[in-house]
């Protein structure tokens, strides 16, 4: 208990600016809420660093798989076509929508990939005890990218598209499809664990900054 209290420090609630003594929570059944506006400040997670490192490595491997194999196949009266994940954005480019194509690629592949990579860049040295400090923009990039990662939204979009298609043709699910579902689940878990307090706490571990 004492070690917990010694970790407490003064913060301001992000949504109502209330000054609070914040104690990092490691109990998975507890979530820290602001007493004034009920903003969820931090979800209690045990071994958050271990979990994030493991999840990030797995998610990056799964994402590479999701980009390598077939995503979906489509068989209409003997005519077949199969696409991979990148086709989902590249076909729009071919049809004369370059900006939209880049936007979709960014939302479903580039940002989730970059976010996980940056997170690993921060967490792995802390975990391994290597004295190497990532530059501050890695942390700032993580915070900026998070709202724009849309893997789970993309999956719901795919499901709706498939329901539209189901009456017209036979749908074949590729390895990438399942890999991308797994990636989304892993990403949601990481999103649940990592908040700005934990993220910057790990960056501090490497830069001897104390709040």
């Amino acid at each position: 208990m004492n070690s917990h209290l010694s970790q407490s420090h003064l913060i301001a609630c992000h949504e109502c600016d209330q000054l609070l003594y914040f104690v990092p929570s490691t109990d998975a059944r507890q979530t820290a809420h602001c007493p004034r506006c009920d903003h969820a400040i931090q979800a209690g997670v045990s071994n958050s660093l271990d979990q994030v490192v493991a999840l990030c490595i797995t998610a990056l491997i799964v994402l590479v798989i999701a980009n390598y194999f077939n995503f979906l196949g489509f068989d209409a009266k003997g005519q077949e076509r199969s696409i991979n994940l990148l086709n989902a954005s590249y076909e729009l480019y071919l049809q004369g929508y370059p900006v939209l194509s880049v936007l979709i690629f960014t939302f479903i592949v580039a940002i989730p990939f970059l976010y996980m990579s940056c997170l690993l860049l921060i967490c792995l040295p802390v975990k391994l005890g290597i004295r190497w400090r990532p530059s501050l923009w890695v942390g700032r990039l993580c915070s900026a990218m998070l709202p724009w990662a849309m893997s789970e939204v993309f999956l719901v979009g795919v499901l709706v598209a498939l329901i539209k298609m189901a009456s017209l043709a036979t749908i074949i699910f590729g390895v990438s499809f399942w890999a991308y579902i797994l990636f989304s689940i892993l990403f949601l878990r990481v999103e649940h664990i990592v908040d700005s307090h934990r993220l910057w706490g790990w960056i501090d571990d490497q830069s001897h900054f104390s709040v």
Partner: peptide, 12 residues
């Protein structure tokens, strides 16, 4: 969602 639906349909 709608943008993704169209992008998947167009690709497929």
């Amino acid at each position: 969602i709608d943008v993704f639906v169209v992008s998947i349909l167009v690709a497929l």
